[in-house]
């Protein structure tokens, strides 16, 4: 494990989520689940972040915001789509204002299904994302040589 995967910082954005997954993401940070023990810190600044957690699906107004945040995160970066809405649109798939899952706008590395996704699953998804982050970093290093 490199230093990167030992202390990844995450940024969370609520696309058009119902809040169910958002409060579960926050619950991961609090004493019972405590993902800080993996060195994970929640930041509000995209330039500090390595992992992008998105809940909810893409709509007309937030698609630019998501792209903006994604572009500001430095390489290597991983995206975790949390909840069934972020994965595919979920029960709201047929709504006129829902364009679909997060992968219609930015590349997604890990999908965490569930409505609402449980904290254990979110942690599992983030840990899985760390492995991918590591791979991406190794590839970047190899490219430099």
């Amino acid at each position: 494990m490199t230093y990167l995967a030992r202390s990844p910082w995450v940024i969370h954005y609520d696309a058009s989520s119902c809040n169910g997954c958002d409060i579960e993401v926050l619950a991961c940070l609090t004493p019972l689940y405590d993902i800080e023990r993996f060195g994970i810190i929640n930041t509000g600044n995209p330039k500090h972040a390595d992992v992008f957690l998105v809940t909810g699906s893409i709509n007309e107004q937030n698609k630019e915001v998501i792209k903006n945040i994604y572009n500001q995160i430095p390489e290597p970066k991983v995206v975790v789509a949390i909840g069934i809405c972020a994965t595919s649109g979920g029960v709201f798939r047929e709504c006129y204002n829902v364009m679909g899952g997060i992968d219609t706008m930015i590349p997604v590395d890990v999908y965490v299904p569930g409505c609402a996704a449980r904290p254990e699953m979110i942690i599992d998804g983030v840990v899985k994302a760390l492995g991918i982050l590591e791979e991406k970093w190794a590839k970047m290093e190899a490219g430099k040589k």
Binding site: N59, E60, Q61, E94, Y96, N97, M99
Partner: peptide
């Protein structure tokens, strides 16, 4: 409220979609 369809509730029913 910006929506992808203009005036979504004013246009025809979404059943036909």
């Amino acid at each position: 409220i910006r929506t992808s369809i203009k005036y979504p509730f004013g246009v025809v029913s979404s059943k036909e979609e």
